[in-house]
Amino acid sequence: MKQRAEPDAGVLYVVGTPIGHLGDLSPRAKALLLAVDTIACEDTRHSGQLLSSLGSTARRCSFHQHNTRTRLPQLLAELEQGRSVAVISDAGLPGISDPGEELVAAARAAGHDVICIPGPCAATTALVSSGLPSARFCFEGFLPAKGRERRERLQQISEHPCTSVLYEAPHRLVQLLDELEELCGPQRPLQVARELTKRHEQQVGPTVEAARLHFHAQAPQGEFTLVLGGAPAPRKETHDDQYWRDQLQVLIASGLSANAAAKQLASGGDRSKRELYALLHQEEPPSSTAHSSSTAIPERSDCAQSDRD
């Protein structure tokens, strides 16, 4: 199938760039960055090194969380004029915990096409290499720095049954690990990843306690991606047959029929109506202290008859 020519006029391109290893830049991403009219960069100095190495001569402008209010109308105006615009972050896929999300939303609201040139992402890279369940996961990004909002978010994460992926800065990592141990317990599965795709890539785990002890002993450096195992399912209380017999007898004594009593108890979902009803017709197991020396031993013929029954 013939591929669509890129870039198109008036289209916003969201371009994934390497999170470490420069070899992860796709040929399509490279071609786009060479051909596009304008490139919005999180940091023009940082991204300038990559773009210069590619030979890109596109106009560059900064686009970060501190200048979105002024940059958004400027970039939308370029799209309106028929120019092609690419947005890139310092590393990874724009729109994941960065202002690229706002630009995409604004471009779509203004009626412009938005096309993603997929590339590396620290969240998914750490997730799939963690060994933790990935069929369902929740991306939390950066947590609030402090206060009640941070505490409430951490409480929610600690109770979530799915794997959670978080970003954290080095100066707050130890605090986060302390908080996770308090809320999740020391043995909750955890992998802390740093320097992903780089020569000194490191993953520390496999539990909250192990990661906490490691980074209390070694000062954190670099950006971190944490993959936290989901909260274990609460243990379901189980009861023996005698408990259910007693519950049935209480209901029967209150005036219910055996059938109605079994049906009512079964509505709780622990035992089926058939199982409960059958318990009423089973003899209670003899107590270990209730044996009498006068207990008769069944005749051989009685035992044989029981076997046939």
Rank of each mutant, 00 (worst) to 15 (best):
H216E: 07
Q218C: 10
H216Q: 15
T207N: 12
G269V: 12
R274N: 14
A231S: 10
Q247R: 15
G269Q: 14
Q247A: 11
S287L: 12
P285V: 07
V250P: 00
H239S: 00
Y277L: 11
H281R: 03
N259G: 01
E209S: 15
A253I: 00
A211E: 08
T225P: 06
Y277K: 09
E284F: 00
A258C: 07
L228Q: 14
R212D: 04
F215S: 07
R274S: 14
E209A: 15
G255A: 07
V250G: 02
L248C: 13
Q247S: 14
Y277W: 10
W244G: 02
E209R: 15
P232D: 07
D246C: 06
G229W: 09
T207L: 05
R274Q: 14
A260P: 01
L280R: 06
L248I: 09
R274A: 15
R212K: 13
A233S: 12
A261M: 02
T207Y: 11
E275Q: 15
R235N: 07
V250R: 08
L226W: 09
V227N: 11
Q247P: 10
P234R: 00
A253M: 07
W244T: 03
T225C: 14
A258G: 12
T289L: 05
K273G: 00
Q282N: 12
H281L: 04
L265R: 06
